[in-house]
């Protein structure tokens, strides 16, 4: 069944259209005057003013790697983030922790861990999929560089951005 939308009955003034134009012009003029005298504008002057203080807890900035309170890399190079990453921004080369290391029990660690920030879409799936709570999206959003190579965050850069996260699971600590 076709549904017929009733046409509104217009008055002469409405049909003439010109009064409506004038009314519209009046509205835009009002906004214009308000903005001209600095009352209406809500634009934030970005590099000088920043959102940083009011970023919400769940803000998804650049993905970073974190260490635990014993300075152990949480990442064990399971490559699930590499697998889940929709734009394939993550590249991991796994390696084996040498037997002399005090964390030898963990056996595996990322030899190389690269996130291509040109590709990253900040979706947070890597954080969600990580079984070791090793990768977190922090609040850094202004990721810039002059070359493509600069935009690839390597392991050192990721740990520098991520820092230490304690109070998470202690799966590899035999006492817990």
């Amino acid at each position: 069944m076709a549904y017929v939308v009733p046409r509104p009955k217009l008055t002469l003034a409405e049909k003439l259209y010109l009064p409506a134009i004038v009314a519209g012009l009046a509205i835009t003029l009002k906004h214009f005057k308000k903005a001209l005298f600095g009352k209406g504008n809500v634009t934030m002057q970005y590099p000088e003013q920043k959102w940083d203080a009011s970023l919400p807890e769940h803000y998804r900035g650049a993905p970073t790697l974190v260490k635990d309170e014993h300075d152990r890399e949480r990442c064990v190079a399971c490559q699930l983030c590499e697998f889940i990453c929709p734009p394939r921004a993550i590249r991991i080369k796994p390696g084996e922790i040498p037997a002399t290391n005090k964390f030898a029990k963990v056996e595996k660690f990322p030899l190389e861990f690269d996130i291509d920030m040109i590709r990253c879409i900040y979706c947070g799936l890597c954080e969600e999929v990580c079984p070791e709570q090793a990768i977190f999206l922090r609040k850094d959003y202004s990721i810039t560089g002059l070359t493509r190579a600069e935009m690839v965050h390597d392991k050192a850069k990721l740990y520098e951005l991520g820092g230490v996260m304690d109070g998470l699971v202690h799966k590899w600590n035999p006492k817990k």
Partner: peptide, 9 residues
């Protein structure tokens, strides 16, 4: 093959 690559790749 140990720790070289995950099989799903």
């Amino acid at each position: 093959f140990r720790f070289k690559m995950r099989v799903w790749f």
